[in-house]
Amino acid sequence: MKCVRCLTDNASKVAEAPDGSKAWEVYVCSRCNFVWRSTEEPEVIDPEKRDPWFQLADVDVDDILVFSPVPPLRK
């Protein structure tokens, strides 16, 4: 399934409303870790309506900045 943020085919359903109401489902993208609920506003879950500033399409996730670099192993 397509991720609404990075637009790759790495998203899948991970949860349903626990009260059995079938009110919504939750999806996670395993590439960019975006998470959304099926009932959210279009500006959040519709790629056409999302603010392009927050999109991660065409971004190599391995190039994203690291705040805490992995330190060298002790010898």
Binding site: C32, N33, L56, V61, I64, V66, F67, S68, V70
Partner: peptide, 24 residues
């Protein structure tokens, strides 16, 4: 240990969104 994963953005306390970072 020793891996980082994409996290963020998040609306932070100065009233601005932080960027996406690779974190723990």
């Amino acid at each position: 240990p020793r891996e980082r994963f994409v996290e963020g953005p998040f609306g932070e306390f100065p009233g601005s969104y932080s960027g996406s970072r690779r974190q723990f």
